[in-house]
């Protein structure tokens, strides 16, 4: 398998505030990577930076940002728009407002196809109808002529998913796709994404703060804190041997590793995600960390806890609370 998406040392700042501080990610074809972390830690901004959808007041930098071997850093808006909706697609947290209220479902879906693949409108509509069926929407032909306001939140999110699949993308980024939905609908949408990912061999970057979701769908997990990926590992490995104190905090409420109750919130850690300026150095978690010492104010190197499992903390792998607080 070849790496489909590679992000190294991604930096995004809004004026004087850094939203992403050196985050790195990698995603293989057909793989699901879950990006987890508390609200405000930079998950959405990371995803938007990959898609080239950042707000105008954002500035982006990276040591590497490549999609299927192509360097995205040098691509202008035109070049990115050729990829977006075509080879990489994204769905959002807000199904109620993500569709244009003025156009029908069919026309909004068809235009993706017409833009990237050309062909006739009828062919694009047929494709849209087919995909609405695939995302398990009943009477798809009738839905094509409906407007977003005629659909429930769950249906709109299904439409968003179907629309994202119009051009058979290789990468699907889903930013908390179920957060705004009813609990029962959440489970259905997640099931759907899981099935589609398998059937279509999609690479999926799924952003969530629901550890139950992570346990069910993730091949790999990246834990994000204050703009950094503080730990990344295969899902089973992460649940079995969480190493970064923040990851352990998140999992603290989980009784049996790997068997997380669906809908379980992230473990409660006192304090909130800080907003760090560009000059900040040392560990970003140190004012909330129970293991913090003076050394945490210095440069922290990325450490390995095994094959494909690394973390950003001065503590050794397998540390125990209170025992390894030196040096």
């Amino acid at each position: 398998m070849s790496r489909l998406l590679e992000v190294e040392a991604l930096e995004v700042s809004f004026g004087a505030a850094s939203a992403v501080r050196g985050a790195s990610l990698a995603l293989d074809r057909g793989e699901t990577l879950c990006l987890v972390g508390e609200s405000g830690c930079g998950k959405s901004v990371t995803a938007l930076a990959v898609m080239g959808l950042l707000a105008r007041n954002a500035s982006r930098g990276a040591a590497r940002l490549s999609f299927d071997g192509q360097d995205l850093r040098g691509l202008d808006e035109r070049g990115m728009s050729r990829l977006r909706g075509n080879r990489m697609a994204m769905i959002f947290q807000e199904p109620m407002t993500s569709l244009n209220p003025a156009y029908t479902v069919g026309s909004q879906m068809a235009e993706v196809m017409l833009r990237h693949r050309g062909g006739t409108r009828a062919a694009a509509m047929a494709r849209a109808e087919d995909l609405l069926g695939r995302v398990r929407i009943t009477s798809p032909a009738m839905r094509l002529g409906q407007y977003p306001h005629q659909l429930s939140g769950g249906l709109r999110q299904r439409v968003m998913i179907a629309m994202a699949l119009m051009c058979d993308p290789e990468l699907l980024i889903a930013d908390e796709p179920t957060t705004a939905l009813d609990v029962t609908v959440q489970a259905q949408i997640l099931r759907l994404l899981l099935d589609l990912q398998k059937d279509l061999g999609l690479a999926m970057l799924l952003i969530t703060h629901d550890l139950g979701v992570v346990a069910r769908v993730a091949h790999r997990v990246a834990v994000m804190y204050a703009g950094e990926v503080v730990e990344t590992a295969a899902a089973a490995d992460l649940f079995a041997r969480p190493t970064h104190p923040y990851t352990r905090g998140l999992l603290a409420c989980v009784p049996v590793p790997g068997k997380v109750a669906r809908g379980a919130a992230l473990g409660s850690i006192a304090g909130v995600v800080p907003r760090l300026g560009p000059g900040f150095s040392g560990c970003g978690f140190r004012d909330r960390c129970g293991e913090a010492t003076a050394a945490c104010g210095g440069t922290i190197a990325r450490a390995s806890a095994g094959e494909g499992h690394d973390y950003l903390c001065r503590l050794p792998p397998g540390w125990r609370a209170g025992a390894g607080a030196a040096p």
């Binding site: 808006e77 728009s81 990829l83 977006r84 909706g85 075509n86 959002f92 156009y103 235009e111 993706v112």
Partner: peptide, 20 residues
């Protein structure tokens, strides 16, 4: 949000501004 969607769909600037 629907303009963000339109951009995520890779639509042309013209279509984003004038249509959506």
């Amino acid at each position: 949000d629907y303009i963000r969607t339109a951009r995520a769909k890779g639509l042309s600037r013209r279509s984003i501004v004038l249509k959506h």
